[in-house]
Write a protein that binds this DNA or RNA. Structure first.
Lengths: 337, 337
DNA sequence: TTGAAAGCGCTAACAA
DNA sequence: TTGTTAGCGCTTTCAA
């Protein structure tokens, strides 16, 4: 089965083009790398020859001499999580704008895979966006020392970050529940180590304080539908009237669990998620949620990363805060009990 | 704002290690590239020094001299489509097994973006998996001539492919509906150019023929929830009792449209999708669907691609066919009218 | 088993 | 504006 590789024609190089066009190789190089530094006519001629020969600059060779690989890494904990696929989409958009290619590092929710993935990808890229990571702050900081880095929804002293406005989002969610007559809100916590989780719970506590709503917290749970179901199991006897979950996936898991066990949503329990993933719209009832501008986050992160690569100073003191928005759908209603 | 780049320590090279270890650079190279060709003790020493210095082989430099970049491209039409994210997951798994990195080429449902994406990525990779593409067969074949390629759910003469067993899946779906007493099945078609769509419709016709069920087809529609809703609008007056949609996204869009317009599922209409994406489980009622082993497809595709790269012969005559499975959930029921 | 030297395809001084 | 000449960091002959 395994034989000698099929012969494929070797890709033409700068030298082939140079010979064919009757100029020096460096002139060919210039034509593509710094047009303007070469006579318009010669350039045209060279391009013509190059096109005829099907010449494409070898990006690796270019990278070797310029040490600009034009590649970026985006690290996520799970590609199949819709939150991250939207993030990747944003990153791709901004990357191609800046003529960068993105390497996907998918941790597959495993520390070891995350390491290996990073190892593999890091030496090839000029910078990295940490969409999510289980690595410790100090580990990340070490990496940030080697390559430009932007982190998402995380607070890493000295490393620029892009975050969503959790406090405002949570505040709006709490207000919404307050307006519907709810007096107590239960927060279903996500992963313990999550910065966003801490932010959200804190924001809820503060909002509760100001709005005279009592708050409590259960968890932590996995940030998945399974985690949500687990939370549901814990609240089955004496469910609260209002719940805010760490994210949509959990809210959906919780929603389905409750409904399956005879608790009606929103009649018995009002439920709010975070992120506004596509599935939030699809469940019955559709989920009220605090929408995060995920794609915009990806775009912002990459734009900042590229700026960093190009020598911008890491204005790391303040994070880039992107606005959230409460999307009211069917899972919240006036309190009835 | 844009200033001189922050100084980052230059990564140690093979020369640094060589000097520090008191050996020739080529020996350091050998230690990593072909261990066994170097004395065990020297090798150990070199590794020790390398570790101490934090040496990491520069993959680009290596690629330049070996012309093995250890990178693969996966082209998809839309990263945010759950079908493709699962595919990417599979590709990642197989790629890391083989010590390859994957470059994601996301077409964002646009021809132009697809082109650019491909241009950007192609010269850097050793091979490419076409998860989906709007490119013509002939264009793809041209590319396959330059780089090893594996296509998914598509039939490209001369190019190895991985497909799901659409005929069997469709057959099972039709049988299921037949057993529930349905006598006519409407197929809601996906994108016109889609090979899978053609396969599915053909398979349904044949199954219908054998099972004495009448079949008809409407569409094409976009393979999205929006497309599904559009189809719903077309069938509002006099809806069929049984519908099979090109994929889950469409089925879900259709489902929600029908329910919103007073048509009950599954009481009035039984509905089946394809793929078994996560959302299929989340909608109400949960969707009966023909599950595709998406992750396995990604794995299979990449494994084959790697084999191809290593010189396996393209046994392109037969495609790799992966089994499908009918997952019966709540959207199908006995015919009542 | 090791070292010396050439070269992968490109860019970047430096001259001309 | 163009050509000449060194490399970029690694692998790979070829000798020793």
């Amino acid at each position: 089965m395994t034989d000698e590789p099929t012969r494929r024609p070797a890709a033409p190089t700068i030298y082939d083009v140079a010979r064919e066009a009757g100029v020096a190789p460096s002139t060919v190089s210039r034509t593509f790398a710094r047009p303007g530094r070469v006579n318009a006519d010669t350039a045209a001629h060279i391009r013509e020859v190059a096109a005829r020969l099907g010449y494409r600059a070898n990006p690796l060779a270019r990278a070797l001499s310029t040490s600009r690989t034009k590649m970026l890494a985006v690290m996520v904990s799970d590609v199949t999580n819709p939150f991250y696929s939207e993030l990747i989409r944003g990153a791709q958009i901004a990357a191609s704008e800046a003529d960068y290619t993105v390497l996907l590092a998918d941790a597959r929710e495993s520390d070891q895979v995350e390491r290996e993935s990073l190892e593999r990808v890091l030496p090839a890229v000029e910078g990295i966006v940490i969409g999510s990571s289980r690595m410790s702050d100090s580990t990340l900081r070490v990496i940030a020392k080697q390559k430009p880095m932007v982190v998402l929804n995380r607070d890493l002293m000295g490393v620029p970050s892009v975050v969503t406005d959790n406090p405002r989002g949570m505040r709006r969610a709490a207000e919404h529940l307050g307006e519907l007559g709810h007096e107590a809100i239960t927060y279903v916590a996500g992963p313990e180590a999550s910065w966003a989780d801490g932010m959200r719970w804190r924001a809820l506590r503060e909002a509760g304080h100001e709005l005279a709503l009592s708050t409590r917290r259960i968890g932590p749970f996995a940030p998945t539908t399974e985690g949500g179901a687990e939370a549901g199991a814990q609240m089955l006897d004496g469910p609260p009237t209002a719940v805010i979950a760490y994210n949509d996936l959990m809210a959906i898991g919780l929603l389905r669990f409750l409904v399956a066990h005879g608790v009606r949503v929103p009649e018995d329990v009002s439920l709010i998620g975070f992120d506004d993933i596509m599935a939030a719209r699809l469940v019955t009832p559709p989920l009220t949620t605090v929408a995060a501008p995920v794609r915009a986050m990806g775009i912002t992160a990459v734009r900042n990363l590229v700026a960093l690569i190009n020598g911008a100073h890491a204005r790391a003191a303040e994070a880039f805060v992107l606005p959230t928005r409460l999307v009211v759908r069917g899972s919240t209603a006036r309190r009835r009990r």
